[in-house]
Design a protein around this nucleic acid. Structure first.
Lengths: 212, 212
DNA sequence: CCATGCAGTTAACAACTGTTCTCTGGAATT
DNA sequence: AATTCCAGAGAACAGTTGTTAACTGCATGG
């Protein structure tokens, strides 16, 4: 199936990726709704009009960035939530996974946090859809757990959404710690992890007593 | 103390408020980082240069909007969280209060949700500070509750932050329901309220078993 | 090998931006 | 009543923006 695409299409995808990367970089200190197409092409070193060969508009580029930032995350979600072990170590494992992801893809995390409620409607919609899919996947994993015996579908989904939102908040806090001065970084990161762990534990506690 | 300020200062504050209102309106479909000063003055009907008499920049105006949107909210928080009654009706009361606030000040809610992680650093900082104050106030109210007996200060604060974040998420969801087509509005609002209530209840459940 | 396709270039456009300086009319102060 | 103050107006600036049209050169498929 891996049809080695010609040097033509290869070059095109290369430029496209360069545009995406440059945009992601520029979005560190502004929002998508203020990102200019000329700004992006200038950063890449290509003519402004070349932009149109890849995207209809910056909003269109934003939607592509959502795919890039969240699309590849689904397998991770599944394997994490379904990891074996008792509740305590599953929580610390999840928090640690979030921390590492923020560490590895800070710009992606920033983009999602920023544009989730940002000023560009199609991008908001794309993020909302992806997060809804995440919630569905988390729900599916939760359903397998014996703790969920007797839960309604609605209750499973409301808990899944609670988890997803909590993950996003935690990721955003890790990012803030990462952006701060280097000498505080380590301690702030540890602090975020500690607080997030206890919050997850409290939610987990509520989960175990839900059917009382 | 109410020194009736002269017609001069009165007119100035009137223009200032008009600028703030116009900006809030324009921010319904864009982010602060793309808001131009000329755009705002044009909407008000004053010369672009008049802007400088009130704000140094649009970022400065943004900080003022944070005060307007969140500053007046502190008394509400206190009275709500400390309202008497059992856990169940306190939760529904809180959710209902959030719903009404979103209904009354949708643009303010949208602004906070959008700029909390937005592209303008001083505004992010202003929102973070206000939310931290909210968390402190919620913590103070939680401390009064007999359920909190034996809790450490740290644990009270982590729970307070959980509540504050949950309130923001809920407010944002109410807003989305409000923005949708009118025929779905009522049902979506009811659905958001129902899910948020159960999430709060689950958290409350975890809270009661925290010291097990 | 030649004709087609198409990623990227060049040039030009009208419209817009933030900021400066100068000016004005009327409220505030003396 | 005379003077100061200052919110807002007006004009001009250099620089930016998105979008258009017509182009060039090279990889591609016949």
């Amino acid at each position: 199936m891996s049809h080695t695409l010609g040097i033509r299409q290869a070059q095109k995808q290369k430029t496209r990726q360069a545009l995406l990367d440059a945009a992601l970089g520029l979005l560190e200190e502004q929002s998508l709704s203020s990102l200019g197409l000329r700004e992006v092409t200038r950063a890449v070193g290509v003519a402004p009009t070349a932009f149109y060969r890849h995207f209809r508009s910056t909003a269109d580029l934003g939607v592509a960035l959502v795919e890039e930032a969240l699309g590849s995350l689904h397998p991770m979600i599944r394997t994490t939530v379904s990891t074996a072990g008792d509740s305590a170590e599953r929580i610390t494992g999840t928090i640690e996974l979030i921390r590492r992801h923020v560490d590895g893809y800070p710009a992606h995390v920033r983009f999602i946090a920023r544009e989730r409620h940002g000023g560009v409607q199609p991008v908001r919609a794309a993020i909302r859809d992806q997060l809804a899919r995440f919630a569905q996947e988390v729900k599916a994993e939760l359903a397998k757990d014996p703790v969920s015996a007797g839960w309604t579908e609605d209750d499973l989904l409301m808990l899944a959404h609670l988890y997803v939102d909590q993950m996003l908040i935690t990721a955003s806090l890790f990012l803030e710690a990462l952006e701060g001065p280097e000498e505080e970084r380590e301690e702030r990161t540890r602090h975020v992890a500690q607080v997030a762990t206890r919050q997850m534990r409290l939610i987990s506690l509520g989960r175990h007593h839900w059917l009382d």
